[in-house]
Write a protein that binds this DNA or RNA. Structure first.
Lengths: 249, 249
DNA sequence: GGTTTCCACTTGTATATACAACCTAAGACA
DNA sequence: TGTCTTAGGTTGTATATACAAGTGGAAACC
């Protein structure tokens, strides 16, 4: 084997190497070091730089392109994609911001803040093994003293070790998690449900009123950080999502 | 090279082989030959069957999994993902496409197709004057003969003059409108509701089941084209939205 | 100068090989 | 019977290698 020319950034973590390469490039994009239409190192350069094989470098770049971060052109090179006009579906992720944007007053009660072992369902959502320890919080958010959301959240301890020490009447878990684990990917699932009696009581809902449940999962560095069920009274809450159509399809 | 044991499905087209393998598997899913949770041939079996290398088979399966069609588990195998009742709000806007992508059969009944005068509410949503003429259609969409959506739509006549002459059991209004008025902007509003008794009957819903209502407005050339209420049974339908956060905000 | 040819670099694909990690089931053993 | 070990199949990753195809510029040629 030839002696590697340049291994300043030798890869060490336990993660697969192609993922480490992906993460490093993504970091440069998200930090602004690499900007739209900038050229990204070629596969061969990554081979030299990180001491990986070309196939590994190829996989990293190919997947980043498939995720929409990069644009590749045979014979030319790889470039940072211009994410201009990317659909900002559900831009609002912080209930406190949303409420204050409407000129109302946000308040919150922390009902639960604990460490528990993950059940099968939660473990799967966070890609942990069954019965792994997770942090769990239940918070009721109010808008002008009227309850508007129950936030039932599970957090992967590795991503936010200090989670249990926070005061969530002051900053929301969302705010805190965004600080400690810059989020990369968000998945939303929206359902209409019949709330159980406890939720109904907490939200001051009548027996007939349906609930709008948003289940959100967030990732950072390719690892799940948190999964949360946001339960809203159907009559007092709605979701809007605007976006421009790009050229797909 | 060893003689291939079984090349009945030898790959011939000019497309890359991994894409041909992907296409063949996808076809089996969408035709219903492979159903949710069915086992998909292992990489080794694909190697035998198609005479490709394991890396090529791996790439085909890996990409299909990354697209959400398959679920893979090390040590166990590869299985068809259960996409039942899932909608990807950003990409898919056509219920017929969405259903066929799940390998199911779409059918539709046109309950109403008429010209009426716009009430105040509809006129406002389409930015027309009160009592302006508008086209109105009500269509029930079914997935494998089970009703899954009531589409209650109002169309601005200027944008689609031939709307009333279309056969919407064949092509959906969405398809037709996309052809005649390339859409620029889409706005979604999502609510949980209690369906009225007619909707409940049409969707085969029980008295307790909530409904998920998506109200969509589309614009073309800066003018509203259409507004539609899509009503779904809460127990059989959910919405998912995935996106990457870029570096804004 | 203008044209063509050719070379270097890039991405895209395909293969053979190797090892690790994971899961299941059959068999060995107590 | 119950528990442990083992073997075989599965996916996940990593590498070295090879060739094809696209691009752009440099060099050769007219």
């Amino acid at each position: 084997m030839a002696i590697a020319a340049d291994k300043h950034h030798a890869l060490r973590s336990g993660l697969p190497r192609y993922q480490q390469v992906k993460a490093l490039i993504l970091e440069q994009i998200q930090s602004g070091e690499l900007r739209a239409n900038d050229r990204v190192p070629s596969e061969q350069e990554l081979v030299m730089h990180f001491g990986v094989s070309r196939m590994t470098a190829n996989r990293a770049l190919r997947e980043l392109a498939s995720d929409g971060y990069l644009v590749r052109q045979a014979g030319v090179g790889t470039f940072v994609a211009d994410l201009h006009g990317r659909s900002q579906i559900m831009k609002v992720q912080n209930i406190a911001d949303e409420i204050s944007r409407r000129g109302h007053i946000h308040s919150a009660d922390v009902l639960t803040l604990e460490k528990i072992v993950a059940g099968h369902d939660v473990a799967e959502r966070l890609q942990l093994v069954d019965e792994a320890p997770v942090f769990h919080s239940v918070i009721v958010h109010r808008e002008n003293d009227q309850p508007i959301q129950i936030e039932d959240r599970f957090v992967c301890p590795a991503a936010a070790p200090e989670y249990l020490q926070q005061d969530f009447t002051d900053t929301t878990p969302n705010q805190y998690l965004c600080e400690v684990a810059p989020l990369q990917t968000v998945e939303h699932t929206i359902r209409a449900i019949i709330p159980d009696s406890r939720s109904r009581a907490l939200l001051n809902m009548s027996r007939e009123e349906p609930g709008l449940l948003i289940r959100r999962r967030t990732w950072s560095d390719g690892r799940p950080v948190s999964t949360v069920d946001l339960c809203h009274p159907g009559h007092r809450y709605e979701l809007t999502a605007n976006f421009q159509s790009s050229n797909e399809d």
